[in-house]
C-alpha cells in the first residue's frame, strides 16, 4: 500500500452565517485506500466532501487534492457522487453515459457499460422511471466509471434496502482500482461498510475526532468500528490532540 497523501486539510473552517459546519480541521488522507467518513448527522461529513470536490470554498484554511489547492477545476480530478438527486429525469442511462463521456476526459464508457450490466440496468432506462434502488445503482455506475484519482461518495447507501446496499457495495469492490484511486465515502451503515474500509475518519461537531486503520483498531485494541465510535463519542470532543489515550 502506498502512503502518499491524496487529500490534505490545513486548519480548515467552513462557516455558514454564524454556524460553523467545520472547525479548524487539519487532516491528511493516504492514497490507494477505501476510507469511510463516519459521524452523526450535522457532524460535517457532507461539508468535508464538498470542500474536496471544490463545490464550496473554505472560510479559512487550505484544502489540497493530489498536492494542488482545490478550485472548481478540481472536478477534472475528483469524481463526486452527490447525496442529492441531481440527474435530469428525462435522460436515459445511455444519455448520461454519453454526457459524462463528453464532460470528463477520464470517463471510461466501456467500464460504464460493464457496470450497467453488473448492476442489471438497461441503457434505455429513464432516470425519472427508476426505482430508488436502481437510481442509487446508476449514480454508482457514473461515479466509478471515471479514472479519477479521488472518488467521493456522499451517503451512497442512504435510504436503500439491504439487498440494493449489498449490490452497490459489491459493485464498488469489483470496479474501484485502488492502484490508482482513493475512495472516500460517508455513511451511517457503519457495521455493513466496515469490512470494505481500510481507514475510518470519525467526525463530530464539525471536527475530525480521530483517523484510524480498521485492522489497527481491531488488532491492537480489539474494537470494531462501532465499539470505537461509541468509545470516542462518549468522550468530550476536543480534537485529536486533546485526547491522551483512547483506552
Amino acid at each position: 500500500m502506498r502512503v502518499e497523501t491524496v487529500v490534505e486539510f490545513e486548519q480548515v473552517s467552513k462557516r455558514y452565517g454564524l454556524r460553523y459546519a467545520l472547525r479548524d480541521v487539519s487532516v491528511r488522507l493516504p492514497s490507494g485506500r477505501i476510507i469511510g467518513l463516519i459521524g452523526a448527522n450535522g457532524s460535517g461529513k457532507s461539508t468535508t466532501l464538498k470542500l474536496m470536490a471544490g463545490l464550496i470554498r473554505p472560510t479559512a484554511g487550505r484544502v489540497r487534492v493530489c498536492g494542488a489547492q482545490v478550485t472548481r477545476r478540481v472536478s477534472q480530478r475528483v469524481s463526486y457522487l452527490s447525496d442529492q438527486d441531481a440527474l435530469y429525469p428525462f435522460f436515459t442511462a445511455e444519455d448520461l453515459i454519453r454526457f459524462f463521456n463528453r464532460v470528463f476526459s477520464d470517463f471510461d464508457a466501456g467500464r460504464a457499460h460493464a457496470m450497467l450490466e453488473f448492476m442489471r440496468l438497461r441503457p434505455d432506462d429513464r432516470v425519472g422511471e427508476l426505482s430508488k434502488g436502481n437510481l442509487g445503482r446508476l449514480k454508482m455506475v457514473l461515479a466509478l466509471s471515471r479514472n479519477a484519482p479521488l472518488i467521493l461518495m456522499d451517503e451512497p447507501l442512504s435510504g436503500l434496502d439491504p439487498l440494493v446496499r449489498q449490490s452497490i457495495l459489491r459493485g464498488l469492490v469489483s470496479f474501484v482500482d485502488l492502484d490508482r484511486q482513493t475512495l472516500l465515502l460517508s455513511t451511517h451503515e457503519v457495521a455493513e461498510v466496515e469490512p470494505l474500509l481500510d481507514t475510518a475518519v470519525l467526525m463530530a461537531e464539525g471536527r475530525v475526532v480521530d483517523v484510524r486503520d480498521i485492522d489497527d483498531l481491531r488488532g491492537r485494541e480489539g474494537l470494531t468500528l462501532i465499539d470505537w465510535m461509541a468509545n470516542r463519542l462518549g468522550q468530550p470532543v476536543g480534537g485529536p490532540e486533546g485526547i491522551a489515550d483512547g483506552r
Binding site: 500500500m1 485506500r33 469492490v173 474501484v176 469490512p195 470494505l196 485492522d215
Partner: peptide
Amino acid sequence: VRDMAVQAGVNPNTVQR
C-alpha cells in the same frame, strides 16, 4: 485478489494482505 474481495465482501487491499 479482486474476485476473492467480491466473494468475501472485503476490500481488495485486505485480500492482498
